[in-house]
């Protein structure tokens, strides 16, 4: 099993509902966030192109953040979800330095926090909070190893890209472009 996401940049309107849903669902301290919206403006008038993306930890296949963690607090659970055990984290910041997406942050309580793909919801058969609230249904979550899952089909049928592939982390969030 390999959890992953497909996000349709052509449907995303940048409303940031996913950001708020995550903050509520996961009790994120005020002023912090696990997901965010990025905009890419490209081209010269009149050939302008706008791409809006909802971004978070990519739950990479090749995880520098897990490798550089000295205590083993950063680890990978079933389905390839990258998690942090708060009680084992010493707050050294090594994993933050090693993430090319700056997807991690230091929780005010002294441990590192990041997107968990809402594994507590996924375990109950629900979708991550961000996916479930998206008003344009631009996000797909599921098992990338299963060719019949919705996310696999969407990834197979569309032109896709990942973020900063040159960083070599093999992201598991695919953007439809």
């Amino acid at each position: 099993m390999r959890y992953g996401m497909a996000i349709d940049t052509r449907k995303c309107v940048g409303c940031a509902d996913c950001v708020v849903a995550c903050q509520t669902e996961n009790n994120i301290p005020i002023g912090y966030t696990r997901d965010w919206i990025a905009e890419l403006n490209e081209g010269t008038y009149p050939n302008l192109h706008l791409e809006i993306r909802s971004e978070r930890c990519n739950h990479c296949e090749n995880t520098p953040c897990v490798r550089t963690c000295p205590t083993g607090a950063s680890h990978i659970i079933l389905g390839g979800i990258v998690k942090v055990t708060h009680e084992e984290c010493i707050g050294c910041g090594a994993c933050i330095q090693s993430c090319p997406y700056d997807a991690r942050y230091m929780h005010p309580d002294g441990y590192v926090d990041k997107c968990t793909f809402c594994d507590h919801r996924v375990a109950n058969g629900q979708e991550p909070a961000c996916v479930s609230v998206c008003p344009t249904h631009c996000m797909y979550f599921g098992d990338l190893d299963d060719p019949n899952s919705e996310v696999s089909k969407v990834v197979a049928a569309n032109k896709i890209k990942t973020l900063a592939p040159e960083a070599g982390t093999k992201p598991q969030i695919f953007y439809l472009v």
Partner: peptide
């Protein structure tokens, strides 16, 4: 022109606007 920026106002302490987790 190519401009890429975060529009939802991510302002995680010591991560944004530039990473500064090690002092």
């Amino acid at each position: 022109m190519r401009e890429e920026l975060i529009t939802s106002g991510r302002m995680n302490l010591n991560i944004d606007p530039v990473l500064h987790i090690w002092h």
